[in-house]
């Protein structure tokens, strides 16, 4: 039972970039990949809380700007030898509009 919230038009998020969605309690990073997939994760690196939204996006991953941790956006898991996980949220795109569901899918 996802409670979809409309967020923004797809074109308002840059390709291979991100926007920050501010809720009452936290910031969520909303990413757009090269092939227009949208991912949402908590805007906080599991390592030292760096803002993931400010990182460089490549395929389905983002590299944290603070210490270069690479986070898989599909699972929220850190890649390579690093260990850690960030909460992910469901997203969907319908008729050019991006929706977000705020029940955390995974992670903490």
């Amino acid at each position: 039972m996802n409670n979809w919230i409309p967020i923004a038009a797809l074109h308002e998020i840059p390709q291979l970039g991100a926007r920050v969605v501010k809720t009452d309690t936290q910031d969520i990073a909303l990413f757009r990949t090269k092939n227009d997939q949208i991912f949402a994760v908590k805007d906080q690196c599991p390592h030292r809380q760096g803002p993931l939204s400010q990182g460089i996006v490549h395929e389905n991953s983002v590299t944290c700007p603070l210490h270069n941790w690479k986070i898989d956006l599909t699972t929220g898991e850190a890649q390579g030898p690093d260990e850690g996980c960030v909460a992910t949220y469901s997203t969907k795109v319908e008729e050019g509009m991006v929706y977000l569901a705020l029940d955390a899918e995974s992670g903490i």
Partner: peptide, 11 residues
């Protein structure tokens, strides 16, 4: 502009 503005939602 998008770089500097957050999208605010009530939730």
């Amino acid at each position: 502009k998008h770089e500097f503005e957050k999208i605010e939602i009530a939730a």
